[in-house]
Nucleic acid binder design. Structure first.
Lengths: 149, 149
DNA sequence: AATGAGATCAATAATCATTCTAAGAAAGCT
DNA sequence: AGCTTTCTTAGAATGATTATTGATCTCATT
């Protein structure tokens, strides 16, 4: 198995998937980023390695990598999509103040059906969970900057 | 208390909030809609009552109503935001096939912190949960249309 | 009733993320 | 090598939303 920064297993890829230089760079950029970069951020970082790469290619590569299970796409409200190379089961914590996105890992494995009453006869394929709040850094910043009025 | 279609309590509004005719229409349109309409859909429905209303005004009204807790905004991936007059605690079930959005109400009241390990010292303000899958209608449609290959 | 401050409205333009299009480049198959 | 398919690229296009700006409305005070 190929070594990688995150320590996750690489999924088995179908034969028709070509790991082109552009896709490799896009994948490596996201794997080396711990801040859930947007497509534009990935584009800027990828350019340092492949200056000729275009934003459209970055979008194409991200789509392909997500479709093949090498990356996760994170959508928060209507802001730009963000990308994440952590393929373990997790949700995202989003700071309303600084916009930072952090991973939050599950503690228990409660099935969805025990938490919410789903439409009778529906089939669940995916769960998108975003926890919004104030991150520890901003909580601290607020406490020192403007004490309770 | 004012009677309304959904049977929920109307929140107490701050003095600086003006319930203008446009805001009233936008609010009533969403309250009378059970399909989580988009801003454009609200615009089209509101036009039947106030033909002169503009899309920009609908956006402004929706923003204000959401900010004052009279409506909920539902964001699913990068599609248009949808709006919802059900102010009870609930999450959304989104059908990948027909795009329908249905409410799903909580069964248990597990605190978030028992389900996911949040960043130490963070403060949670909101939980955005979208359950994706196939709705009962589409499951049925698929079964009759194309039996297992 | 007139005034003035502040909020709201509507039309238009602008922005922003993303997708589409078309043409050339690269890779894989025969 | 020749053919086919897939990728990449630049630029145009799309679609949702936001910003701007001047007109209009509302309300508390004169």
């Amino acid at each position: 198995m190929k070594a990688n920064l995150t320590g996750h297993d690489e999924p088995v890829l179908p034969a028709d998937f070509r790991m082109t230089p552009q896709r490799t760079v896009v994948h490596e950029v996201v794997k080396a980023s711990y801040d859930h970069p947007t497509a534009t951020e990935v584009f800027m970082r990828a350019k340092e390695h492949v200056p000729a790469i275009s934003l459209a290619t970055v979008y194409n590569c991200l789509d392909t990598l997500v479709a093949h299970g090498l990356l996760k796409q994170v959508n928060l409200d209507r802001a730009s999509s963000r990308f994440c190379a952590n393929m373990n089961d997790h949700v995202h914590f989003h700071c309303d103040q600084c916009g930072a996105v952090a991973d939050a890992h599950p503690i228990s494995n409660m099935p969805i059906s025990t938490l919410w009453k789903l439409p009778e006869g529906s089939r669940v394929t995916r769960l998108d969970i975003a926890i919004r709040g104030i991150c520890p850094e901003c909580v601290k910043k607020n406490a020192t900057a403007k004490p309770q009025v």
